[in-house]
């Protein structure tokens, strides 16, 4: 997602209503790796991932232990989905 807008931690908290500690927890748990890791700035992918994790935890009752497993499976699903669409186009 190069070239997209990026946001500082304070902006992410303000715009999307994430608690500061929640975002830090997600980064420290390696669930979210900021698009710009040294400056700690987040892009659209990071924000969508933060929102997904919040939904999983607060609305669907998923605990911390299950989060990395679900994220991994979703990334696997998305990779295969995009790759298969690409493969189908080229095979048609």
């Amino acid at each position: 997602m190069t070239g997209t807008k990026s946001y500082a931690l304070a902006e992410v908290s303000e715009i999307w209503g994430f608690e500061h500690a929640y975002v830090v927890h997600c980064v420290r748990s390696h669930w979210v790796v900021p698009a710009e890791p040294i400056e700690v700035r987040f892009d659209e992918e990071d924000v969508a991932r933060l929102k997904l994790i919040r939904e999983l935890q607060t609305e669907l009752g998923v605990n911390d232990d299950a989060i990395p497993i679900i994220l991994h499976l979703l990334d696997q699903l998305n990779y295969i989905r995009v790759s298969s669409e690409d493969w189908e186009k080229r095979s048609a």
Binding site: M1, T2, I15, W16, E44, E45, A48, R49, K51
Partner: peptide
Amino acid sequence: QPGGGPFYYETQNGPGARYSQ
């Protein structure tokens, strides 16, 4: 809810998607 934006899978559609790629 505040902020809006796409679902996560919608950000993972291209070759530039960092997490799924």
